[in-house]
Nucleic acid binder design. Sequence first.
DNA 1: TGCGTGACCCAAC
DNA 2: GGTTGGGCCACGC
Length: 104
Amino acid sequence: MPQPPAGFVDAVLAVAADIPPGRVATYGDVAALLGSRGARAVGQVMARYGSEVAWWRVVRAGGRPPTGHASRAREHYEAEGTPLLPASNEDGYRIDLAACRWRP
DNA sequence: TGCGTGACCCAAC
DNA sequence: GGTTGGGCCACGC
């Protein structure tokens, strides 16, 4: 594992680690908790350091899984009992934010 | 110091 | 219901 992340990165990972199993938070929510609107910056952090946290608990607005990782994320959701809903998109599903959206 | 990048978000057509 | 374009932010070179 790389050296300890910088301030913003550490904050993002801390929030991700704070999300309890079976619940999820959106990138925008995580950014808002950090006092910033850099949802993309959060995605950058997850892309680089996501391997060390429950990245699947951080999803996009609308309950869609991270781009290019829908398949792996789905297995974690089913394993943790996260409520999913059927969808006609390529991922074939979406997360039920109304039921499992986490807020501090 | 400055520009390009990205697991994004929202409003509009 | 889907696609398009613009905006925001932190990071790396």
